[in-house]
Write a protein that binds this DNA or RNA. Structure first.
Lengths: 216, 216
DNA sequence: CCGACTTTGTGCGCGTGTTCACAAAGGCTT
DNA sequence: AAGCCTTTGTGAACACGCGCACAAAGTCGG
């Protein structure tokens, strides 16, 4: 379930404040969800709450971590060390959650060899060998859009089945390979869409039509 | 609808190849969705297809752009110029979609005054004035997690109603304010979750239970 | 001018996820 | 020890989005 990481983060901040137990109501508020939904989510991975009291924070942290597979370490490769790739390589939020930055790859010869955050950037020609040798299980693609599908194919051919894609293209992958996409431009466009609606809807015939119909 | 930006990008690449018309089947494939879904989405903003032929690419680009509010320019402020903020400031995908990088703000005095991508970083003390003067309508938060809610409150108080949040916290905002969240760590955790299931599920009683039940 | 073919637009059934509301369960107080 | 109070876990209604499948509509060839 995609909400478990959010719960986990909320639980971590509670743990830092030495909170021992938490009710579904409180945790749901911290995670920004409905309390019934949270209880149902937690019940799906076995029931670890005590009626009348709530959930024990530490125990819940352990259970969710285990469910998410964070009790083991995952080796991550970042491919493409442009602005975004560098930001990702330097992002501290990875290591703290069981993700090990294991390899950096780029095609640009002026970038290859550079040391970023304690790792040396390798040339993308060595992709297959690096993935095998470093035991990479997750690849992060921060390459230009036109190169993304080709790099993706090579990564998949090397046995990686989890990809985080920052390139603004729809990747085609075989069954069994998971791709998650982050597109900054799309996020802004969605905000613009809502912003525009708040400002009175799109200009033109549609707006006039809508105004005539629902009196907005 | 959150899929419109994806359609729009697919249409732009088609337009670059001088494609004049496109069927729902082709466009759906390019966008990675079901063709019936695509047709239904497009019909929701008025019907612009010709039966037996398909959709005219240029016209559809215009209609979707207008629906998304991309026919007008939006001024964006980036708050927090760490690694991620810098990457965002230098990201070319914004300007090409009607988003104008209008202001950069940071609290760190060693960063304030720096020029990034043709803009000077202002001190966050001037937040309210900058937002008003530059006509900021969208704020991008790339600040450390502990500072996010406070900065968010100030941004909202200044009249901004659209926020793109990169800090790993759940922001609380008044009704009428839209927040979209991008959390890189959560994306990786979701991938790890699926990766683990592919590898045989979590170790422990749950796995044994699941194996006993569904024979996986 | 007509018929066959292509493609859109959409009614409908289905499965998933969400929320309400309540009974069961455990702790706490007296 | 007994009853009250809090909180979990979950059954059931609800809502939503998805995709199939088909009729309407428009094009193109003869």
């Amino acid at each position: 379930m995609a909400r478990l990481p959010v719960y986990l983060r909320a639980l971590h901040t509670l743990a830092e404040r030495d909170v021992v137990t938490v009710s579904s109501e409180e945790l749901a508020a911290a995670a920004g969800v409905n309390s019934a939904k949270l209880r149902k989510d937690l019940s799906h991975l076995g029931s670890y709450g005590t009626r009348g009291v709530g959930y024990e924070v530490q125990y819940l942290v352990y259970q969710i971590s285990r469910e998410l597979g964070l009790t083991q370490d995952w080796s991550v490769a970042i491919i493409g060390l442009g602005n975004l790739g560098r930001a990702l390589a330097g992002y501290g939020g990875f290591a703290s959650r069981g993700f090990r930055m294991a390899a950096l790859l780029d095609a640009d010869p002026t970038i290859v060899g550079e040391r970023i955050n304690g790792l040396t950037v390798e040339h993308i020609d060595k992709l297959e060998r690096v993935i095998t040798d470093c035991g990479i299980s997750i690849a992060v693609l921060a390459v230009p859009a036109p190169a993304a599908q080709a790099v993706c194919d090579r990564v998949v051919a090397s046995g990686v089945t989890s990809i985080l894609n920052f390139a603004p293209v729809v990747l085609t992958v075989p069954d069994g390979v998971d791709v998650r996409k982050v597109d900054l431009s799309i996020e802004l466009q969605i905000l613009a869409f809502h912003e525009q609606r708040k400002a009175g809807g799109p200009a033109g015939v549609e707006q006039e039509y809508l105004e005539a119909v629902d009196g907005q």
